[in-house]
Design a protein around this nucleic acid. Structure first.
Lengths: 349, 349
DNA sequence: AACGCGACAGCAAGCGCTTTCTAAACAAGA
DNA sequence: TCTTGTTTAGAAAGCGCTTGCTGTCGCGTT
């Protein structure tokens, strides 16, 4: 029925061991023999049995990529970059690896489930992307899993996620969300804004907290009181941005700027402002975060903080594959870059 | 070092066989025994060895999802929907499956490589999303792989991809790209447009061809000559839409409408028009395809054809898991819905 | 001429699990 | 009492591959 190594060996008149060595290519095999084996492989259309191979070798060629929301380009772009460094053709280094993207949907349980599944598959590496959930119990559980994975020989990399003190062996490429948030708000303050609304993401995420902290730091540095009523929490999606904006306007119709948790939310905010008859940026300025591809096409183009998602993802991928040295101390901070565009301007007086 | 089934068995004072049966839960085990085993599993923090299990059982819990471009929400949305039906309990007993997204980047070789990798892993199912590549050799190779996968017990589902006549065992959920394209262009013609530019996708994709055919059918049905100079091919991205639009304008500045291969391209087209000092839709109407989430937020909102990506993906996922009957004949056509919005209007006279 | 050694190839022992077949224990029908 | 059936547990044979160790052979050294 299915072709096995033994079949290939028989056909090539060699032992199974030799076939295995030809296929794995880390043991001297005479080129004439090798050729014979490869021909047999070809003729029989042989495909290695992955599970058997993984079992015997105690390693697999799976690399897991965990994302919060695969439908969100923020994660899609990182995932694509990571995968491009991991395998398929082109990633020659030491065999083909299967980079698999796992969608947690932002759910803690699913995150753990996937981690277990990956552990079960004896994954070669795992990359966790995006912000972490700030729940002590859950964070502890994740850290414990990461430690186990590491012990089992799985490389662990965090991309766009803060370091996990409880799992220090995980390499972390962290986005400077705090700094970016601060830059953004300072830009707005510099333009003359004093009444800024802030649409934050879900409460329990590190990304949310850090960006918000940056915003508040900027306010504080300029002696602007941070009225808690000017901050609204929501999900990281357009709808949430729309509703949050209406809420902010209800609370304070004199707002001159809205800072959104990310670009998607900012787009929703723009829609809400327009639907409320307000012009951007003449009446209200809007700023986003991430600089996703569509942001430059918004009308007006969105002022935002560009995060080098592709570069960071690629680097994370290389580190996961052991093809690049981890940063000293296992932690690197990746900075964003303020992109000033049409959606922010001098406030009306 | 690592905990094995035998360790658990020893601790629970039962045989490995019993532990296995408890874990797989498809064999009668006395509840007292079961409990003892589960406690041991818990105490030892045991995690099943996936490869070993797959080897012994000759099946794995991997489900592959192939996408052309994971950074594109079109695929991200489908992938999320598919995965949501795959993960978690629900399938077989013991049923956690690992839904893995593989990014081919639109490359034929990568597509085949991933298919081989999935075959190697003895995947439980494979879902291919998005348009196929129209290259006889490649199509044949893919079909052959699909047939092999099927023979090996892997369920194969196509989602948003035309049926593969050479691999009839693959269930196909096909988008009615031709019909959608036709509707869109007829809408424009109905508004009075006669000089329509068309920005098509890459030449060799079925999606590209079908949408274009629909467009031409509409022109033809209304006796409008199809000037080949009014069609430009490009990639499915924003940049391509931008450049193609400039090219179309150069060829015929009197265009009154631009139909884009998809929403992302349409966004680029809008940018190009605006940069050329043209108003939408007063000077030129623009239409997209897919109705991605950001399309409604474009200014003006994009007229487009909504494809039920989430529904189709979910259905494909269920079929892949064997939880839903395949459509009769193994083929189902999924229709799009014309969404008329602000980006199209009556042409200037 | 004897020896040593490098380069290859094969043997066989697992890797950790599933599953068939068998056995034990007990209840119930004859 | 003996047979038959039912339920639950164990023994053991692999699943297909990798790899440490053991040869074998030919050739350069001494």
């Amino acid at each position: 029925m299915t072709v096995t190594l033994a079949d290939v060996a028989a056909r090539a008149q060699v032992s199974p061991a030799t076939v295995s060595r030809v296929l794995n290519g880390n043991y001297p095999v005479a080129s004439s023999t090798r050729e014979r084996v490869l021909r047999a492989v070809d003729e029989l259309d042989y495909v290695l049995n992955g599970p058997a191979s993984s079992l015997a070798a105690a390693t697999s060629d799976l690399v897991g990529i965990l994302v919060n929301d695969i439908a969100d380009p923020f994660f899609g772009i990182m995932a694509a970059a990571i995968q491009s460094e991991i395998g398929g053709p082109g990633g020659r280094a030491g065999g083909e690896r299967l980079g698999v993207v796992c969608n947690t949907g932002g759910s803690p349980e699913r995150e753990l489930t996937y981690l277990t599944l990956l552990q079960r598959q004896r994954a070669a590496a795992v990359v966790l992307t995006g912000g972490a959930i700030e729940d002590t119990a859950h964070a502890g559980a994740v850290a414990a899993k990461l430690r186990k994975l590491h012990e089992a020989g799985t490389r662990v990399v965090l991309c766009g996620r803060p370091p996990a003190p409880e799992a220090p062996e995980a390499i972390a490429l962290t986005f400077d969300n705090r700094g970016g948030g601060r830059q953004l708000t300072e830009h707005l303050i510099g333009l003359g804004h004093r009444r800024l609304g802030y649409i934050a993401g879900p409460e329990e995420r590190t990304t949310t907290r850090h960006r918000l902290e940056g915003h508040r730091a900027a306010l504080d540095a300029h002696g602007i009181e941070d009225d808690p009523r000017r901050t609204v929490h929501g999900r990281y999606d357009r709808r949430s941005g729309y509703e949050a904006t209406l809420e902010l306007l209800r609370r304070d119709p004199s707002l001159t700027a809205v800072v959104a948790a990310n670009d998607t939310v900012a787009l929703g905010a723009c829609a809400a402002l327009r639907d409320s008859g307000l012009r951007i940026p003449d009446d209200v300025s809007v700023a986003g975060f991430d600089d996703l591809p569509f942001s430059v096409d918004a009308v007006p183009a969105l002022t935002t903080v560009r995060l080098p998602l592709t570069e960071a993802g690629a680097r994370a991928g290389r580190i996961a594959m052991g093809r690049e040295e981890p940063p000293p101390g296992g932690i690197a901070v990746v900075r964003g870059e303020l992109m000033v565009r049409g959606s922010t301007g001098v406030p009306r007086t």
